[in-house]
Amino acid sequence: MSKLLFKYLSIILTIYLLSTIIDGIYIGDISSLLAMGLVLLVINLIIKPILLLITLPFSILTLGLFTFIVNAWTIMIADHFISDVNMNGFLNSLLAAFIITILYHLFRDMNKA
């Protein structure tokens, strides 16, 4: 399976799981969840590299940990475009970014085995 499909699956799975665990994260229906995953995937392909380049000095100072902040920003941007999904703030977006990264690497490692 392709890298983009793993990323898409990790995005929608994470947002769905977080919406069942955290009361502040709201998903209207399954089509909104799928649209959120697609919009976030496109934002990660287009806007995220630009944000990473702009914030490169902060990433160097924090030894790469600032990329989680950039990931949270991209989730908040995608949340702005999808009306039926509400991440309810920066901390939920940061948690989602962290778990998306973990799930993506787990999916990727399972594919290699």
Rank of each mutant, 00 (worst) to 15 (best):
L41T: 14
L18H: 10
S2F: 13
S59K: 06
Y8S: 01
L103Q: 04
T67H: 04
N111L: 12
F98Q: 01
I12E: 06
L40H: 06
N86G: 02
L61G: 00
P57W: 11
L56G: 01
D109Y: 08
D29N: 15
L53P: 00
G24D: 14
A35P: 04
D29E: 15
S10K: 05
N86P: 02
W73D: 00
Y104K: 02
I11K: 03
L13Q: 02
I99A: 00
V70K: 02
I25L: 04
T62R: 06
S10V: 05
I82K: 02
L51N: 05
M110G: 03
V39Y: 09
F81C: 00
I11T: 04
I54W: 09
T20L: 12
Y26M: 11
L17D: 11
D109F: 09
F68E: 04
T101V: 08
L106N: 01
I77F: 12
H80C: 06
T55G: 03
N111R: 13
V42D: 04
A96W: 11
L13K: 02
M36K: 11
S59R: 04
I77G: 02
L17R: 10
H105E: 15
A72I: 05
L41P: 08
V70P: 03
G24P: 00
L45N: 04
D109P: 03
S83F: 10
I99L: 14
H105N: 11
F58V: 01
L95P: 00
H105Q: 13
A78N: 00
T14K: 10
P57K: 12
H105F: 12
G28Y: 13
A96V: 09
I21R: 07
K48L: 07
W73C: 06
L51Y: 08
I46D: 04
D84T: 11
D29I: 08
L41M: 05
L65E: 01
G89T: 04
F6P: 03
L33I: 08
I102C: 04
A35D: 07
